[in-house]
């Protein structure tokens, strides 16, 4: 029961901070994989798909496109509670005149090879001297795992909520992962935002000596490359990554993660 109150308290704390919904990468790993999550599952994976989560705590920071006025902070956490996994997350884009924030609470449940998850996101948007607004949005996802293959599907904003008289984006995300060798995984995925073309993604991760991994990815439409390195020491993981943009500078990202023991 104490754990339940702790989770509830963290959720309330996050909700009271500022928040956003631009589907930006929520961690250095997602920055390196262009948003694909099955190559390596982390606490922040749940932001892309509520069915995919690893228990632990992860915090990340980036200056988007290397612009010091666009800091982007993330916090993700996942807790096992009997047969459920509960996640709490917060993202903050903190510009001097423009702030966006997402705080989310998710839950998923595993039945044999299938995991189903749902999450609620509290969106907050504030433009200096113009408006501030907030809304709840719901996401749902499913994950299927069998042997060396896993597949996940998610829909974001299933209730088709609008936000300040503007429809919020509805995302469909599909991803499949294949463990190509003992040391490497490859994922391919599609992302479809309503009223936009499909975006194709591919990511790989390769692990050396169980402690060091290299991550690389490609996204088509728009064309982007992501790359990163992960160092794992016991239950701690540090990830640094970069991601290209057609016109702007590279986005550098760094994450720290502590994984709970199973």
């Amino acid at each position: 029961m104490n754990r339940f109150f702790l989770i509830f308290f963290i959720y309330l704390f996050i909700v009271n901070s500022h928040s956003i919904d631009l589907n930006l990468p929520a961690s250095a790993l997602q920055n390196a994989t262009n948003g694909l999550i099955l190559t390596k599952i982390m606490p922040s994976s749940v932001i892309q798909n509520p069915a995919v989560i690893k228990t632990g705590i992860e915090t990340s920071i980036s200056y988007l496109y290397n612009l010091s006025e666009l800091p982007y902070y993330n916090f993700s956490s996942g807790f096992r509670f009997k047969k459920f996994t509960i996640s709490l997350n917060s993202n903050l884009l903190n510009h001097q005149f423009y702030k966006e924030n997402i705080a989310s609470l998710g839950v998923n449940y595993q039945v044999k090879n299938i995991t189903m998850g749902i999450s609620s996101r509290f969106l907050y948007n504030s433009v200096e001297n113009y408006h501030s607004f907030s809304k709840f949005v719901f996401d749902a996802g499913v994950l299927y795992e069998r042997g060396e293959v896993s597949t996940a599907f998610a829909m974001k904003n299933i209730t088709q909520t609008d936000f300040f008289d503007t429809p919020l984006p509805i995302f469909f995300l599909w991803e499949s992962n294949y463990k190509i060798s003992q040391a490497s995984n490859i994922s391919i995925g599609l992302e479809k935002q309503q009223d936009f073309y499909f975006s194709f993604k591919m990511a790989t991760i390769y692990t050396f000596f169980d402690v060091f991994s290299l991550i690389s990815s490609y996204q088509y439409n728009p064309e982007r490359l992501g790359a990163g390195a992960l160092i794992k020491i016991k239950n701690y993981e540090i990830i640094y990554s970069i991601r290209s943009h057609k016109y702007l500078s590279l986005t550098h990202y760094i994450s720290f993660c502590y994984a709970f023991k199973k």
Binding site: I180, S181, S184, I186, T204, Y206, L214, S216
Partner: peptide, 13 residues
């Protein structure tokens, strides 16, 4: 640059 991989997968950045 960096090149890494094994007999099944090779990558270069």
């Amino acid at each position: 640059g960096i090149r890494w991989g094994d007999q099944r997968i090779k990558q270069l950045l």
